[in-house]
Nucleic acid binder design. Sequence first.
DNA 1: TCTGGCGTTGTTCCC
DNA 2: GGGGAACAACGCCAG
Length: 501
Amino acid sequence: MTKVPSVIHWFRLDLRIHDNLALRNAINEAENRKHLLRAVYVIDPDIIKTKVGVNRLKFLLQSLQNLDENLRKLNSCLYVIRGKATEELPKLFDKWQVKFLTTQVDIDPEYVNQDVIIEKVAEEKDIFIVKRVQHTVFDVHSVLKKNNGAIPLTYQKFLSLVTDIQVKECIEITKKLSDHCKAPEKDLKGYEVPKLDEFLDESALEPCKYPGGETEALKRLHMYMAKKQWVCQFEKPNTSPNSIEPSTTVLSPYISHGCLSVKLFYHKLKEAESGSKHSQPPVSLMGQLMWREFYYTAGAGAKNFDKMVGNPVCTQIPWGKNDEHLKAWAEGRTGYPFVDAIMRQLKQEGWIHHLARHMVACFLTRGDLWISWEEGAKVFEDYLLDYDWSLNAGNWMWLSASAFFYKYFRVYSPVAFGKKTDKEGLFIRKYVPELKKYPTAFIYEPWKAPKSVQVSAGCIVGEGYPKRIVDHDKIHKENMQKMAAAYRANKEKKAIKRPRS
DNA sequence: TCTGGCGTTGTTCCC
DNA sequence: GGGGAACAACGCCAG
């Protein structure tokens, strides 16, 4: 057992040293008490096998590696604990004589449940815990309180709640940790940052398009914020879902892992916008950030936000089950080239444009396949680098017209939608290479190509590329009727619940 | 209690 | 090819 007691900062979704108040609190506490600072991250090897896809795992490990490098600049380092937080941390509380623990506030039930257990253990062991809101711009619980505990159900309503809230300045850690607060190097044994090959075979992975880490995050942020005019003119609906290079910032994976502070992003946007005419929420870049806050607020306020049943904001829809269709969708072989290209980009690169998410989410749920949004959310959880509990559930509910958005008759066409921004089908040609020689006239609808054209393009529909698993023109109309019926049933149920007095 | 305005990002047809 | 209207199938919220 160590003689000198310890202060822990438990990193979770705040894999950075900039604007990390909880980390600064831990450092200051260690200095004042003359304790050792232990910066820890807990990684559960089992979760990796089930929920986190290989690309996201790689991103996470790169972020941890970079975090360790940045901590070393502060005369500290990162301990990576293998196992479950609720089992491993209590052991370390004893081993390291922990007196003080800091961490960030999270709303993902997985973290919330962990917190309950850890806080109980900490209380028994007389460990003081400090939690800081630093994964959202606003404290979502105080936003809910401001709305009398009700969940804001529209974006505009949410904006009206936060418009007069003063956002605090970012904080920096300017002083290095004193040598006497630095834990001995030998303590690190067994807690080193994992190399990729500890968890996966790197050779099986695609080249890394978006490397993880705080350093990369800040580089990316500054690159975009330097383009003041671009920032001020940004309007999301005018960006392209199917450009070969992303038409938006791709800061999302860095934000979801906390490599980038949302508060820093907020202030940088304010700075870029100040003194210039600029676009406004919901379509502006600031508007994008506010969408995130909106979903976080809803996710914190609603029970079972990531499920249909027992979720107060979610319309109950009798989705069907079709594992073959689900699999075809997830693997990018629905027979609709635009849908398949998007799903293959997602699987390969871990990121797709927001409107591309609209396209495939609508297709899976109310548009074509009539499969529950919960199934789609699970696939996204696996594949997305920027997976985020509340955003994922919120957006899936939006697209399936289960909550927040109700115009279910607006269905994305898997043929027409992509053409608006990519007539030639370059995006399809890249991600569905078996169709790359198809003439432009048939690139979105290869089944319409005469056999001779299919032969000369080197790919027969039904052999080299799948036949359509559904007929969109027919099925989307049937699904609209089902949506109408589900809405009617929901309305009747509500009327029974709240009878006229 | 009722009503009209409005909501980040639809499609298709027609001029 | 760009813009506007028809299509017909919405719920939330402020007044």
